[in-house]
Design a protein around this nucleic acid. Structure first.
Length: 371
DNA sequence: AACTCGTGGGA
DNA sequence: TTCCCAAGAGT
């Protein structure tokens, strides 16, 4: 089949490329299996899609394996303790995803009889499932002709059509362009093909256009500057915030931990006591800011980069009796410390205070941050 | 519509 | 070193 301009149908070119060059991923049903009518488990599709939100395939693989081993079905996950889910998610980031994951599992298990809705609209009504994830599950798990638009597809589409309008404003246009390409017969394979193409060929820098199945149709390549796309709005600067963290250790090497509020930054995760993180350079980051009196000893500073600010956290350590602490937390034995729902920044802080508990994380970055 | 929300890896 | 960014969602 050819179009009037003489180029092959880009949709079929993309699918044919996917048949040969698709990535093998733990949550994926290969195109050969899909052709034989094998359908992926909607639970595994959903879990992988949520984990992959703004997160690399490499980072997701281990977490996906642990989650599916521990909770093989959505009902298993729905019955789990929320704290156990937060512990299993610790280190993956964007912790609202874990809270919504649990809520979504409960809704599916207890209000939908353990089955996921099969339409985009039904899926999007669930917590943690937005435009992209709803379309991806509908297409991949339920063979619905849904237009799947993620960062990879945005790059491929914006280059194919040389979309000059900047993201995110150009998203509706791009969704329309994807919808026009999405086939009725293999919508799930097509979505995954476009994402694989964006991840392996149509890359942000130095795309391998010579290997691209749709290079003959690509307007950006014809203009000799594919890297110009997608055009994006200017990003804001990342301010620095300062704070202090206090690692209290008792006679048995247990560490005093607290639970953060269930919403906002690192919501629902575990922490060591500390100050607020403020932009003020004259803010209290010394031992006088500690939640309880002790002979606090400075351990140095850890740096940590969040999405919209950079943190420099001064870390203090003290050996204290259990009676010295307030009632806002608990004492966690050092043997079970690494199983807690501690986000990476807290592991860095504890690692600086107690190098034999957590290996110091990213020492180079920590040194840079302390300057 | 513009902010908030993590982390690690690659160039 | 610094920057970018990776299968985005919620508010």
């Amino acid at each position: 089949m050819t179009f009037s301009d003489g180029n092959p149908d880009p949709t079929r070119q993309v699918l044919a490329w996917y048949d040969r060059h698709h990535r093998d991923l733990p949550w994926r049903v290969s195109p050969a299996m899909a052709a034989r009518g094998i359908r992926p488990d909607p639970y595994r599709v959903w879990l992988s899609e949520v984990m992959l939100q703004q997160t690399t395939v490499q980072a997701v693989k281990d977490y996906f394996a642990r989650f599916t081993a521990k909770w093989p079905t959505v009902t298993d996950l729905a019955r789990a303790e929320t704290e156990e889910v937060m512990k299993a998610w610790a280190g993956l980031g964007y912790y609202a995803r874990a809270r919504n994951l649990k809520k979504c599992a409960e809704t599916v298990a207890f209000e939908h009889g353990g089955r996921f809705p099969e339409t985009e609209e039904g899926l999007k009504a669930l917590p943690g499932i937005g435009d992209y994830t709803a379309a991806a599950i509908a297409a991949i798990a339920f063979q619905r002709q849904a237009a799947v638009l993620d960062g990879n597809v945005e790059r491929v589409i914006s280059r194919l059509h040389a979309v000059d309008a900047p993201l995110p404003g150009s998203k509706p246009l791009m969704r329309q362009l994807v919808a026009a390409m999405t086939p009725a017969d293999r919508p799930g394979d097509f979505a995954q093909a476009m994402m694989d193409l964006g991840a392996t060929i149509c890359t942000p820098k130095r795309p391998a256009c010579a290997l691209c199945p749709v290079n003959a149709s690509c307007k950006a390549l014809a203009e000799h500057d594919p890297e110009r796309f997608p055009v994006k709005a200017a990003k804001k600067d990342r301010p620095v915030r300062l704070g202090a963290a206090f690692v209290a250790v008792d006679e048995q090497d247990a560490v005093f931990l607290r639970k953060r509020p269930g919403h906002g930054l690192l919501g629902g995760m575990t922490e060591v006591p500390g100050t607020d993180w403020t932009a003020r350079r004259d803010g209290a980051t010394g031992p006088e800011a500690a939640p309880f009196a002790a002979s606090w000893e400075s351990c140095g500073t850890v740096g940590h980069v969040f999405t919209h600010f950079e943190l420099r956290l001064t870390v203090y350590r003290s050996r204290v009796g259990r009676a010295a602490t307030d009632g806002t937390g608990w004492w966690e034995p050092r043997d079970t410390l690494h199983d807690q729902a501690l986000p990476t920044v807290m592991r860095k802080a504890i690692g600086l205070a107690l190098p034999d508990v957590f290996a110091p994380v990213a020492p180079a970055a920590a040194r840079a941050a302390s300057r």
